[in-house]
Amino acid sequence: MHNNYPSVRTYFLVFGALLLLLIATVGAHFVALGPFQPVVSLGIALLKALLIILFFMHVKASSGLVKLFAAAGFLWLLIFFLLTFGDFATRYWVPTLNQ
């Protein structure tokens, strides 16, 4: 089960990628991206989290059951956000309700 764990080289490559993504997100901060700014910085954060989960937390090398358990928490968080913003983001679409 543990034979397919990442090598030391992989850990350093992932670390290098994480630092590059950090530099990219700080760099993007100084570029006028307008409405895409949150998309870029949150997208980079998602990429970083994915790298940490898959390699540092060994999820890529784990069994399907562990992968399922790891994904479950994030899946419920996604539902949590979708339902909440299904309300908050659409409230003012019907102006008459708020007059």
Partner: peptide, 25 residues
């Protein structure tokens, strides 16, 4: 045994995801 340990840890981490997730929300 190791798989069971990892599963238990991920269940705990899921509860932590919801704790911080609530604040992010």
């Amino acid at each position: 045994e190791r798989e069971v340990n990892a599963l238990g840890m991920w269940v705990f981490l899921a509860s932590e995801i919801m704790l911080f997730g609530g604040l992010f929300l």
